[in-house]
């Protein structure tokens, strides 16, 4: 029997191995730092710690299989649901305000012959460079009527300031920190895509008698819609993950519970109450819900985009 000539085979083999070689590092990193930890979190969420006797002395605790009981108790915990409710309310306040402001500033900066453009851009962007914890500490001081210069001025003027650390004021206080910190980033994203639009469009519009306002409303905003979708998507995910800001404000007020946001509940379960199993189950639930919401949103947007075109 005649065997196939060796050279083409070697070539074929080399050709078929190369992609795997390129894929290897990424796959390895993905497995090590992404798939494995997630898999382990899922595994932990199915485990629990059981005690025998008084639970004192050595070997009093054993890890046992818990089935889905961590999930049932995570889902049955009303705090997870009300925490999600609080975060949604906070997001409903935050996202439109922040993106509205970002779009507004981006459009202003894009107006021809704008003065101090680079400086304004930097000033609006700067708060984004301040870490969330620092920003929250800073704003926390400003929210405490006893130490805040703002409240001092208001009292001197015979007025009383709003109560920003309790009740509904807390949502305003929280949203304000995020708007302050996030507007700059979103503005840069929108501004960059505004700059990428061809100038001929504006020229044509001006020849047709469009004012700058009409250009902004009729041309610029529709043209940057994709980056608005992108910034909305990022903001939505950031909202669902809100953690550092409420954790920093918590010691300042009676009204911020340790389960104010879903992630705070995960932190409390794992690191205050020492129950990593329940924390793992809650994180898996949160991850699933976030994924569902994100993909649902993307799908919705794609559908509308396709339907519209």
């Amino acid at each position: 029997m005649a065997s196939p000539p060796p050279v083409p085979r070697a070539v074929r083999r080399r050709g078929s191995l190369a992609p795997y070689g390129f894929l290897g590092p990424a796959t390895l990193l993905f497995t090590l730092f992404f798939a494995l930890p997630i898999g382990f979190a899922v595994y932990l969420s199915l485990r629990a710690s059981r005690v025998k006797g008084l639970g004192l002395g050595s070997h009093a605790r054993t890890e046992v299989w818990a089935g889905l009981s961590n999930y049932t108790s995570a889902l049955a915990d009303s705090e997870l649901l009300s925490g999600s409710g609080r975060v949604l309310l906070y997001g409903a306040l935050l996202v439109p305000t922040m993106l509205g402001a970002a779009l507004f500033f981006a459009l202003l900066l894009d107006v021809p012959r704008v003065r101090f453009g680079a400086f304004s851009r930097l000033v609006i962007f700067l708060p984004y460079a301040v870490p969330g914890i620092v920003a929250s500490t800073l704003w926390g001081f400003l929210y405490l009527p006893q130490v805040s210069p703002g409240y001092y001025l208001l009292t001197r003027a015979g007025m009383s300031g709003p109560d920003l650390l309790h009740g509904n004021g807390l949502y305003l206080a929280m949203a304000n920190i995020a708007v302050w910190g996030g507007t700059g980033f979103n503005m840069i994203v929108i501004y960059t895509s505004l700059r990428a639009l061809p100038a001929e469009l504006y020229e044509a519009a001006r020849l047709d008698g469009c004012s700058e306002l009409q250009i902004a409303l009729r041309i610029k905003i529709p043209m940057v819609a994709p980056s608005l979708v992108l910034t909305f998507f990022f903001s939505m995910i950031a909202t669902l993950q809100v953690f550092a800001e409420p954790m920093t404000l918590k010691p300042l007020t009676n009204s911020m519970s340790s389960t104010w946001s879903p992630l705070m509940k995960v932190y409390r379960d794992a690191f205050v109450q020492g129950n990593i199993y329940s924390a793992a189950a809650t994180s898996v639930v949160i991850a699933a819900a976030t994924l569902l919401l994100s993909f649902g949103f993307l799908k919705l947007v794609n559908k509308r985009a396709n339907g519209g075109s």
Partner: peptide, 19 residues
């Protein structure tokens, strides 16, 4: 999307220590 996953990873890391 990283931060959500970082949390899951953190939870998992604790678990690795347990193992």
């Amino acid at each position: 999307m990283h931060r959500r996953l970082a949390l899951a990873a953190a939870a998992a890391l604790c678990g690795t220590l347990v193992l």
